[in-house]
């Protein structure tokens, strides 16, 4: 499975994502249900860290954030 697919799944899938945007080193994601986001699956997929604030989830992925975000968009 691609890294983009693993991250999409770990975020709870397309249905759970309200908005996803890259910012240099991180994916900024707004989700419907934060409980469906699996932090350990995100780090297993290569995320450096996950920072949560309510429905706003930041997935820290390093400088490949832009590329990953467009790969994830392609899967949605």
């Amino acid at each position: 499975m691609s890294k983009a697919q693993q991250i999409l799944d770990a975020l709870g899938g397309d249905d759970n994502i309200i908005d996803l945007e890259p910012c240099i080193t991180r994916l900024r994601v707004e989700v419907t249900d934060p409980a469906k986001v699996n932090d350990s699956a995100l780090t297993a997929a290569g995320a450096i860290a996950v920072v949560r604030s309510g429905i706003a989830i930041q997935v820290i992925v390093g400088p490949e954030a832009d590329t990953l975000a467009s790969d994830i968009e392609d899967l949605r």
């Binding site: 450096i48 860290a49 920072v51 820290i60 390093g62």
Partner: peptide, 9 residues
């Protein structure tokens, strides 16, 4: 910012 403050990147 927790990412920069902790030197995560």
């Amino acid at each position: 910012d927790p990412v920069f403050a902790a030197g995560l990147v």
